[in-house]
Amino acid sequence: MNAQRISAIFEKDIKDFMKNMMLLMMPVIPIILALLYKQLGGEEGLPIPMLYLIVGVTFSSVTASCMMTMMAEENEKKTLRGLMLSPASFLDIIIGKSLVVGLMSFIALTISLVIVGIKPFLNVQAIIGLILLFLFFLFLGIGIGLFTKSIASTSAYLMPVMFLFGFTPMIDFLGLGEDSTAIMIADVFPLMQLIDMHDTNSWIPIGIVAIWALGAALFTYICFKKVRTDD
């Protein structure tokens, strides 16, 4: 890992981000959603699942989506190969890009949560949970971005990611029975685990989200191995 190379990639990506209207609009989505939900919440504020819906939308539409688009663009325009042929390691490239996406996600999430109510998240367990959730979406974004060959094809992958992992709490509004298979599977998903975490002092939900993040990291590693050479 090399700090100068990481900062060079960060500097390049932040300049590129600021000139890319498509990416610039992404952090606005959760903020608008938060403003709309704020109206629904009334005096007593929004319930925890609704707050996590904002978190899910932020991480899927900003973290995963921006990362996916940035990596896919690098892949499509062959600039990623240029970075990989330079002395920068894959870790340098990923950290440099993640800092930009992380900064944008942090700004969007903070503004959104301040609008709808940030109090439930101001404890160590919730913060660790959010960090692990961020890493999960980040790795998912990197992996899919490496795997797809064009920006256009990222949308085909982004939709399932958003609906499965970003909007998971919405499953409760589908009117499915408590013991339905879909509900039982959805309960293991990272966002649902973090919602459950607020009802218990157990660290098991955090552990499960950590496993999801590790799985996404492994997926990223496999995708990286595939794009490293032309074989």
Binding site: Q4, R5, S7, A8, I9, E11, K12, K15, D16, K19, N20, K77, K78, T79, R81, G82, L83, L85, S86, P87, A88, D230
Partner: peptide, 22 residues
Amino acid sequence: NSSLYERLTIYDNLKLFCKLYD
């Protein structure tokens, strides 16, 4: 396989690689 960052200037492109190669 060589390519450039289209939204950046020539100078910014070269600056990136200057820094990457120290």
